[in-house]
Write a protein that binds this DNA or RNA. Sequence first.
DNA 1: GCAAAAGTGGACGATATTCTTCCGCTTGCG
DNA 2: CGCAAGCGGAAGAATATCGTCCACTTTTGC
Lengths: 219, 219
Amino acid sequence: MTEGWEVVTALPPVRLRADARRNRDKIVAAAVHAFTEDGPYLPMEEIARLAGVGVGTLYRHFPDRDALIIAVVQGSLATMLARARAAMVDEPCAWDALIRSMSGSPELRLALRLPNLFQPATTEVIRADPEIRRIRGELMAQIDTLVQAAQQEGTLRADVGTGDVVHLFSLLLQGMQKMPRELGEVVYERSCAIVLDGLRTRRGPLLPGGPLTLRDITE
Amino acid sequence: MTEGWEVVTALPPVRLRADARRNRDKIVAAAVHAFTEDGPYLPMEEIARLAGVGVGTLYRHFPDRDALIIAVVQGSLATMLARARAAMVDEPCAWDALIRSMSGSPELRLALRLPNLFQPATTEVIRADPEIRRIRGELMAQIDTLVQAAQQEGTLRADVGTGDVVHLFSLLLQGMQKMPRELGEVVYERSCAIVLDGLRTRRGPLLPGGPLTLRDITE
DNA sequence: GCAAAAGTGGACGATATTCTTCCGCTTGCG
DNA sequence: CGCAAGCGGAAGAATATCGTCCACTTTTGC
């Protein structure tokens, strides 16, 4: 569910050697994954390990944690924006475009719900970054457009706002954390379907799979 | 929303001096709050500070972090169980009893979704505690009963299980984290109403308040 | 009231974690 | 092939956290 997406990575200022470029991307990818799973303050060494590089390499590319966070957030926002635009072009129905834009991507939380994740000091640094401000603004406008379009066409209930929608998706994503991969996906699919039924003007079809017991979700 | 509930605290083995008893309760209360907000591995000193006691006092009552966690989980489970039973007795309608049992209490996450919160080693310790096993079992049975009753009476959709319901409420709670108190409550109310509409057999009334914008939830 | 028992706070040394630099070795590039 | 760019990870510095200890305060039983 979370793979196969094209991921956008901001280019570093100077031209890098090919292998260095690869390493940089591996680091950012690992950091996105690690941040969404464990929060942004796990040890730098752990991030390096997950990326399959040495700490030295990590510090070469990102002089400190904030620099890494900035890169990760930039990348996540850009990825989300690209996806939202693609969805808007491809899908004839605004509802489908909206769902496709927001479904199952770890980037969503990082991209839009910063204050829940980062320490205040870091949040400041992120807000201050002009590139982030720019993409973030565009992305927010894009989602607003989708939400309004979906309401116009009568598929999305009229009494919700973009904030409601984003918040709910962000929660659904959060809910997969720390679950075994397969269970996480089942749980996500079902919760998502229920929430979508709450967001739709008209009720959708039966939920996928069978009812989850308490034992299912608590192992 | 989260106050005014009667909270159940497991009695310590030996009789304590009155002030010691008060301190113990303050510690557990602070720990519930801190755990749900920041996870269970914040510094012991911080927990003591939040409880308004010295670290020495904390260590006197709970020789290590695990002992504190056990006490907190026991208390949370007991509180949830008491609430569910009370709701079942008071409310004529199973749907109302179910919602009332699960709404807006920080105990829910701690009580039922342990594996997401604790390190594996700690999870083992918790599972091993016989008192916890006992209350936990009763609580799960109680919620199962409520869910089935609500489906019987035709208010809760038939294709969800107890696990689905608990997971969703646990997410809604999680979503209040780190938000300013007032915003957190508005967001919770609205998300909860949307999710409930997804869980109901028939759509409920209009959502409380006005649509949330992206700016609302990202400050 | 008063003395003994129980409880308290928080400074402090021990320990564990995490950061960050540095440098000898490797690798892609022209 | 030469060499600049990049790499890994050991190691010392800096920090964070733990958990004990004890002089002082509060409650309780009489």
